[in-house]
C-alpha cells in the first residue's frame, strides 16, 4: 500500500502511540494500564508502520529480533523478583525507593520493573505474531 495520507499520519500517530504506551506503563501500578496493555499499544504502532510502509522496514524499526525482546523481558521480570530476597523477605517482595523530584514525592519499585518485563514480553510476542501474519497475507 502506498498512501501518502496514511504514511504521513502514521509517522505522527506512531510517536503519539509510543508516548501513550510509556504513560500506560508507568501509570499501571495504581490505575488502569500496565505493562501488558502498553505492550499491545507498542505492537499496534509497529503494525501500523507495517501497514503504511512495508513489513521489512517495520522489522528494522525494532532493531533487534522480537525473540530477543521476549527473552530480555522475561529476564527483567525474573530479576525484579530477586531484590526482595536480599533483604530477607520472600521471593517477589516489592522493594520501594522514595525520593522527591522538584518537591513531588516519587516512588519507584521492583513491581514497576516487573511490569517493564511484562511490557517487553508482550511487545516481542505481539510483534512476532503480527508481522508473521502480515507476511503470510502478503
Amino acid at each position: 500500500m502506498n498512501s501518502v495520507l496514511l504514511m504521513t499520519t502514521a509517522r505522527l500517530l506512531i510517536s503519539i502511540l509510543l508516548l501513550f504506551a510509556i504513560f500506560l506503563l508507568v501509570r499501571g501500578h495504581n490505575a488502569p494500564g500496565g505493562g501488558f496493555i502498553a505492550g499491545l499499544v507498542v505492537a499496534s504502532a509497529v503494525g501500523l508502520y507495517a501497514l503504511a510502509f512495508d513489513i521489512r522496514s517495520a522489522r528494522s524499526l525494532l532493531r533487534v529480533h522480537p525473540r530477543t525482546i521476549i527473552a530480555v523481558g522475561l529476564l527483567v521480570a525474573v530479576l525484579s523478583a530477586l531484590p526482595g530476597m536480599f533483604s530477607g523477605d520472600p521471593f517477589m517482595t516489592g522493594i520501594w525507593v522514595d525520593f522527591s523530584v522538584g518537591g513531588e514525592s516519587v516512588k519507584l519499585g521492583t513491581p514497576l520493573l516487573f511490569d517493564l518485563g511484562v511490557f517487553l514480553v508482550v511487545v516481542g510476542m505481539a510483534t512476532i505474531a503480527l508481522l508473521w501474519l502480515a507476511e503470510e497475507e502478503g
Binding site: 527473552a71 522475561l74 529476564l75 525474573v78 523478583a81 530476597m85 521471593f91
Partner: peptide
C-alpha cells in the same frame, strides 16, 4: 528458606533464557 523453594523454579527459567542468548 525462601531461596531453596524458589530455586527449582527460577534456575530452569534463567537457564531457558540463557539458552536463547547462546
Amino acid at each position: 528458606m525462601s531461596l531453596l523453594i524458589v530455586t527449582p523454579i527460577v534456575a530452569p527459567l534463567l537457564a531457558a533464557l540463557a539458552g536463547v542468548a547462546f
